[in-house]
Structures are given as C-alpha cells and as structure tokens.
Amino acid sequence: MIDISIEKLALLLIIAVFVLGPTKLPEYARKLARLIRELRRMASGAQEKIRQELGPEFEEIDWRKMDPRQYDPRRIIREALLEDEPVPSAAAAVPVTPPSAPPARPVVRLAEGQKAPFDDEST
C-alpha cells in the first residue's frame, strides 16, 4: 500500500492544480478515476480467478500459520524431535550432553609477540 499522509496528498493536489490548470484538471481527474476503477475491476477479477482455480480448499487455509513472523526454529525443532514422545516433566528431566559434542579445548594464552596458529587448509 502506498504510504501517503494527508499533508502530502494535499500538497500533490495543489501542485496538480498549478501545473495542469483549472481547465485540464477535471479531464485528468476523470481519467484518474477511470484508471482506479479499472485497476479495482482487474484486481477483483484476478482474485476471483485464483479462487476458482484453487477450489474450495483455498478457503480452508490458515494463512496465519504461514506468516514468516511466526517462524521460530527452536519451536519447530522441538516439535519435530518430540513429535511421538511425551514431554517429560521438569522433575524427571535429567540434563544430558549430546554424545556428538566435541570436547571443550582449554584456552591457551599466547606469549607477547607470538603469532596465532593458522591452518592453510581450513580456508
């Protein structure tokens, strides 16, 4: 949708009056109204054609589920992993580290002036 405030619209109308003049302004206003009516007719026709092509299933779609703002990867993964398993209670939950997690490396401080290790094959 075009985001035009009332002030901007009024300014455009004043400029149009000065540029077009009072003699041509009604003619261009009629042309603009005709164009808007034609665009609305085309939009409603396209909407009706889409409804006919997609059939009655189109009306049953919950468009809120497909809103990308509702996308939460953590929830999706949680639901996929716990799809068939019951959700454990908080008291029965035991923290488990995944077996594929690499062991934590100790932090090694470099001496002053010592260069950091660099692996040519990693990049």
Rank of each mutant, 00 (worst) to 15 (best):
Gln70Trp: 04
Gln70Asn: 14
Val17Gln: 14
Arg64Asp: 15
Leu9Cys: 10
Glu53Leu: 08
Leu11Asp: 09
Glu59Gly: 04
Gly45Pro: 00
Gly21Ile: 01
Ala29Met: 12
Glu48Phe: 01
Pro26Val: 01
Met42Asp: 06
Lys8Arg: 13
Val96Arg: 01
Arg74Thr: 10
Val108Ala: 03
Phe118His: 08
Pro56Cys: 03
Arg34Met: 09
Ala46Cys: 07
Ala111Asn: 07
Ala16Ile: 03
Trp63Gln: 07
Arg78Ser: 11
Ser122Gly: 14
Lys49Thr: 11
Glu53Ile: 04
Lys24Thr: 06
Pro98Arg: 11
Ser5Asn: 13
Pro98Leu: 15
Arg34Ile: 03
Ala91Arg: 09
Gln52Ile: 09
Pro95Ser: 13
Ala10Ser: 13
Pro99Arg: 00
Glu38Phe: 09
Ile61Gly: 00
Phe18Ala: 04
Leu39Tyr: 04
Glu83Trp: 11
Pro95Gly: 07
Asp67Ala: 07
Pro86His: 04
Pro26Ala: 02
Gly113Ala: 15
Ser100Ala: 12
Glu59Met: 04
Thr123Leu: 15
Pro98His: 13
Tyr28Pro: 00
Ile6His: 05
Met66Cys: 11
Pro102Gln: 10
Glu79Asp: 15
Val87Pro: 00
Leu32Phe: 10
Glu60Met: 08
Arg41Asn: 08
Ser44Glu: 13
Ala116Asp: 09
Lys31Pro: 03
Gln52Pro: 04
Ala116Tyr: 13
Ala43Ile: 05
Arg75Gln: 10
Leu54Asn: 04
Asp67Ile: 05
Leu35Thr: 07
Arg64Gly: 11
Pro117Val: 00
Leu110Gln: 02
Glu57Arg: 09
Arg69Cys: 03
Ala33Asp: 10
Gly21Tyr: 01
Leu82Glu: 12
Ile50Leu: 14
Leu82Pro: 00
Ser5Thr: 12
Ala91Trp: 04
Glu112Asn: 13
Val17Glu: 10
Leu9His: 02
Glu112His: 14
Tyr28Trp: 08
Lys8Ile: 03
Ile76Asn: 06
Pro22Asn: 08
Tyr28Glu: 11
Val96Gln: 02
Pro86Leu: 04
Gln47Tyr: 01
Glu112Trp: 06
Glu121Ile: 03
Glu57Met: 10
Ser44His: 10
Ile76Leu: 15
Glu38His: 09
Pro68Arg: 12
Leu82Arg: 08
Lys115Met: 13
Ala46Arg: 06
Arg37Met: 12
Ala16Tyr: 02
Leu13Asp: 03
Gly55Pro: 00
Asp67Met: 09
Lys8His: 14
Gly113Tyr: 14
Glu53Asn: 07
Ile6Tyr: 07
Gly21Cys: 11
Gln52Phe: 11
Asp119Met: 02
Pro102Cys: 07
Val107Thr: 07
Val108Tyr: 03
Met1Gly: 05
Asp72Phe: 07
Pro86Met: 07
Met42Trp: 09
Pro68Ala: 06
Ser122Cys: 14
Pro95Asp: 10
Thr23Val: 10
Val108Met: 06
Asp84Gly: 05
